[in-house]
Design a protein around this nucleic acid. Sequence first.
DNA 1: TTGTATGCGTTATCAT
DNA 2: ATGATAACGCATACAA
Lengths: 339, 339
Amino acid sequence: MTAPTRRSRATILEVARDAGVSKTSVSRYFGDERSRLSPDMQQRIAASASRLGYRPNRIARGLKGGQSGLIGMLVADIRNPFSVAVMHGVEQACRAHGFSLMVCNTDNDPAQERDHLALLASYRVEGLVLNVAGHPGEELAALTERDTPLVLLDRSLDDLEADMVGLDNDRAIDAALEHLRAQGYGELLYISEPPERASSRQRRLERFWTKLGADGLEGEVCCLPLDDSPALERAIADFLDRPAAAPRAVLCANGNVTLAVTRVLQARGDTLGTTGLMGIDELDWCGLVGPGITTLAQPTEAIGRAAMDSLLERLTDSRRPPRQVRFSPTLIARGSTRR
Amino acid sequence: MTAPTRRSRATILEVARDAGVSKTSVSRYFGDERSRLSPDMQQRIAASASRLGYRPNRIARGLKGGQSGLIGMLVADIRNPFSVAVMHGVEQACRAHGFSLMVCNTDNDPAQERDHLALLASYRVEGLVLNVAGHPGEELAALTERDTPLVLLDRSLDDLEADMVGLDNDRAIDAALEHLRAQGYGELLYISEPPERASSRQRRLERFWTKLGADGLEGEVCCLPLDDSPALERAIADFLDRPAAAPRAVLCANGNVTLAVTRVLQARGDTLGTTGLMGIDELDWCGLVGPGITTLAQPTEAIGRAAMDSLLERLTDSRRPPRQVRFSPTLIARGSTRR
DNA sequence: TTGTATGCGTTATCAT
DNA sequence: ATGATAACGCATACAA
C-alpha cells in the first residue's frame, strides 16, 4: 500500500474528477457556499478531498478574486520589544479575521522600506500596517491608488493623510514630568534618538519643551544616535557632573534609550533614585535593575488590535475620514524615581 | 494634469500595448532575459512600465511557475528575544536570495501550529523553517510529500528526519558546569521549562544529569511552567533555604527561565554571586542586574543564516542526507558567578 | 442543486 | 530577436 508519491498537490480538478462532480461544486464546497450542495455531494467531495490531501491554492484564489488574504506590515526595528508586542497584537487580530500577516523588518533603512513595500505590493496585500523611518512616497502612492487601506503605527508621515495608531505622546510626557516633579526632581535631561524621521519622537520632544516651564522644572535635551556611546556618556556626564540647585533626573524617550542610559549610569556608578531615571516603554527587566526603573508602559497589544481595526473599517468604507487613535500610557513607579 | 485614478495596477498586457510590443517581451524584460531584447525595445518597455507604474504581480507569477517566492517560518514564541534574533538572521538570508519570509507565531500552541502550517502550505511556500512545540504530523507530511525543504530550529521532531540547526546543547551544559565548578560552586539547581515538547530542553536536561557526577558536583533539577510562580518560588526556597556543604548556584535552561528566576531571587533578597546564577541565552539586560548575570550566548544570527543555507541547499539537491548543524555557545562571565 | 465557460496576470512552448 | 498561444488553479456569471 504505497501512497502515491506526488510531485505537486492535488488540484481542484483532480478532486472533482475523483468525486465525479464538477470543479464548480468543489469550489463551492471550499468557498462559503457549502450549504448549497446536497448532503450526498458534500460527502463525496469531502472524501475525495481528504484522500487526495487537497488544499485550496490561495495563490490561485487570489489571482482570480484579487483577494490575497494578506495583510502587510513594515516594522522599523524588529528587535525592539515594543514592535514585537504590537506585531503580536496585529497578528492575533489578523487571524481572528481570516487574514495572514506578512511582516517585513526594515532595520530603519529607507531603502529597505521601499524594497519591502514594493514587495508587499507585488503580493497584492489587502491592507498595510506601517511603522517606518523614511517616507516611501512613490511606492506608497502606488498602493493608495488602489485604495489599499493603510494605518500608521507610532509614527505619522508628512503629507500623508492616513489612519494612525499610537501612544498619546503629550499625555506621556505630561505624566512623566508630573511624576518627576512630584518626586522632587528639579532638573531634567531628556534623551532621545534623532527625531527627524520619527514623528512620535518629535512630538515628545516638543511637548517636553512646552511643559517644562509650566511645571517649574529646569531641563535640557540631548538627541543622538545610540550607537555613539561616547557621545552619550559625555552628554550624561555634562549633566550630572556639575553643581545643581535641585535633584536631577534623566528621562528616556523610549526603551532603547532606557537601555543605553542605564548602561552608562551603571558604568559611572550612579545610584538610581539619587539620580532619577525614568523611561517611556516598559521592558521585561525594568523591575530588576537596582531599585527598579520607573516607566510609562504602552498598551502594546491594544495598539496592534486597534491598527487592525482601522484597516478592517477602511476595507468596508474607504471614504471614512482619517482618524487617529491615541492610547494613554500607564505609570509604573519604581525605585529609580524615589529619592 | 490629473493622474489617471486607476482602480487596479497596470498589467503586463497594458504595458505591452503601450509600448507596442508583445506580452512575452515585457515578461522577458522583467524576468531574467532582459539581455535577449534589443536595446530599443528595452527602452520602450522601461518607459511604458515606469509611466504606468507597472509591477509584476507575484501572485500570478507564482501561479504559473509554481514559484511563490515565499519561505515560511513557524515560531513557537515570538516574544522570546532569542526567536526574534534568529528570525532576523533568517530574514536577511531570505532577502539575499530573493525570497520573502512569512512568519507565523504559534504561541506554543499545537493547534495554531497546525493551522499556520496549513496556511503556509496553501501559499505554496518553497521552504519551511520550523520552531515548534507539537508535532504537526499530517500537515507536515503534506508539505514534505511535495519535497518542500524543511529545517528544524532548536528543536527536533521525533520520527522526522530533517535538517536541524541549533545550539550544541551538550557543549553548552558542559561549559556551564565547568564554569560553575571552577568558580567554586558545589551544589546546583537546574531549572527548565517542561521538556516534553522541546527536544533541546530534553537534551540539556539529560546532559546535566550525565555530567554532574563527573564534575564532582551535587545537583538537582526542577521542571515547571513559568506561569506558576508560586511553584518556582517554592522550588528555589527548597534549594536555598537549607544547610549546604558547598556554595550553591542556579542554572537556567533558557532566557525565559533566567528572567523568572532573577525575579524570584530579587524578591527573596538573595545576593547574586553568593548565590550563583547562570543562564543559557544572552539578553540585553543581563549585564545590568546586580553584579551582572553570567550567560552562555547563542550565535543567533548565524543560526538563522545556517537555517536558510540548509533550505537553499536542499532546494538544489533534495536527496542530500539530513544534516544537523550545532553551534557552540559563548561564555559571558559576570558577577553572578563570582563569589 | 449542479454544470459550462471564461478570465485573472503571468510564464513556457513553440513558432517566426 | 520577437510574438502568438496555451496553460497555471481557481472563482464566477450564466445556463440548465
